[in-house]
Amino acid sequence: MSDTVKIYVDEKMMEVPAGISVAAAILGHSHSHNHSNDQSRKAFHNNSMDASPRAPYCLMGVCFECMMEIDGEANVQSCLVTVQDGMQVKRQLNTEAFHYKNTEDDLPENRRTNND
């Protein structure tokens, strides 16, 4: 049994100790001197309301800021998943800031509005 496993974060390979969580792997093993490139400080996901960058706060399952796509499943708490060889991990960064209303494109043409 190997002491390390290879996981793929946004398709980039990382070799990390076996037995640790995905979130701990990314936070603890992907540093860079160049702060703006530092993968450990890059958002794990964007918040679904205001699209702000979020990363783990608690690393133990209560803050829900570690959510990532793991092996095709979205919104998985990566701090509760143990790294496995070949695991595909993706940051969820494509959220736009949330609005209450549909855009004009979504609404049917002959709808009534408040002004009718």
């Binding site: 209450y100 209303k101 609404l107 049917p108 709808r111 009534r112 509005t113 408040n114």
Partner: peptide
């Protein structure tokens, strides 16, 4: 909704789309 919005200043999301 228009009246309520004017008095309360609260925007109430609504769809009259059927």
């Amino acid at each position: 909704l228009q009246e309520l919005k004017e008095i309360s200043k609260i925007e109430i999301p609504v769809n009259f789309t059927g």
